[in-house]
Design a protein around this nucleic acid. Sequence first.
DNA 1: CAAAATGGTTACCTCCATGTAACTTAAGCA
DNA 2: TGCTTAAGTTACATGGAGGTAACCATTTTG
Lengths: 142, 142
Amino acid sequence: MDHTMSHRLEDIRQLPMLEDCTITRQILDRVGDKWSVLIIVNLGVESLRFKELQRRSGGISQRMLTQTLRHLERDGLVWRKATPTVPLTVEYGLTKLGESLLQPLASLVEWVNGNRGEIAKARSGYDSDHQDTELAGYPAVE
Amino acid sequence: MDHTMSHRLEDIRQLPMLEDCTITRQILDRVGDKWSVLIIVNLGVESLRFKELQRRSGGISQRMLTQTLRHLERDGLVWRKATPTVPLTVEYGLTKLGESLLQPLASLVEWVNGNRGEIAKARSGYDSDHQDTELAGYPAVE
DNA sequence: CAAAATGGTTACCTCCATGTAACTTAAGCA
DNA sequence: TGCTTAAGTTACATGGAGGTAACCATTTTG
């Protein structure tokens, strides 16, 4: 029983759908942007008002927070509820769809946490082998 | 038995590690960049030489392909094997670590594929509610 | 009276990710 | 002679992501 390409995931064959797939790229962009994941995770803990969310998302500006929230809301991951008090009260939270994204995100983050050491090792190995040909300046390691 | 915050993932409590965590951000950047996931997926199918990898990664330039590969190699996700033939022969493939990332990535891509419809619906709903306040020009939907 | 707080919007600036195109080396081929 | 190939590197240009700061309305607090 010769099976040279043994333990690859069977999922893999489906993944190349990604090439022509605009929406997948857009969601990956969202996952990759500077604030979305952090916002989603914070709202995953509990629903929050704008300012409180900002406080918990260390250093995000009002502009970026609104922008990020608008994107997430547009994609149906986050809901927004404004109460016309004075001053205005606005609450944000995850929709069902947003919550369903927590699992895949957690997989990713857990992968990083589980492989932090190996990544760091790979990097310092690579760096000492390539001291000359510098790669876009990473600050050493870990 | 009152448990107001019922069905949240327990993982969530671990996730905020992400805030101070440079390396997580770096890996998310990689996931979010334009080519890394595509390259990883292609190499997930089989190891490939440079040109063949380029052909399968529709439209990537030599410059971006080398750059992306160098980053992935540095992080220990991809190996590179150069054979000093003439012209030079170089083969790329996933390391064990790289292969172990396929699963989390597949989760994400599958999430997108499974929720494509709902996302599209959310977007058109949002857009018709906010025809005025335009969000960074998305091209309609799906 | 002035400052703070809430939830934004708008204008402006900068840096980096990405794209394009030319150049390289050594051999094979017509 | 000169074109092609493989696997890059280098220089240059650009769009957009992201940061900073000012401004808005209204009410409460000092």
